[in-house]
Amino acid sequence: MHRLRSLFIAIVSLTLILAVVLRSARATGQAAQTQASEIKVDNFTFSPEVVTVPLNSTVTWTNKDDVPHVIASTDGVFRSKGLDTDDRYSFKFTRAGTYSYYCSIHPKMTGKIVVQ
């Protein structure tokens, strides 16, 4: 009985280790595909206005204006704090789709992130 129990524990442990190894390997593969993307906020516009990125990319906005801006997705997925001059805000996109966003205090400023 004792030997059987040890064998059982060994098999379970091996399976768990294998699962962890496989998972981290997959994660490494994904990380290799991840891209960083930069958006400049300048003169009350997002530049570029439309950005297309692969899944799991991190997009970073940098405010180059003398006034603060707030990066806010139209449907509430992400929202920065008030960004002063040269402040940055990053968001990682882990689901595919098109994300419309705007500056919540200067709503004429709009942009789009397409995640593929």
Partner: peptide
């Protein structure tokens, strides 16, 4: 008139 501003609006 500065709250709940809508994207693209005034």
């Amino acid at each position: 008139n500065v709250m709940n501003l809508k994207a693209g609006g005034l």
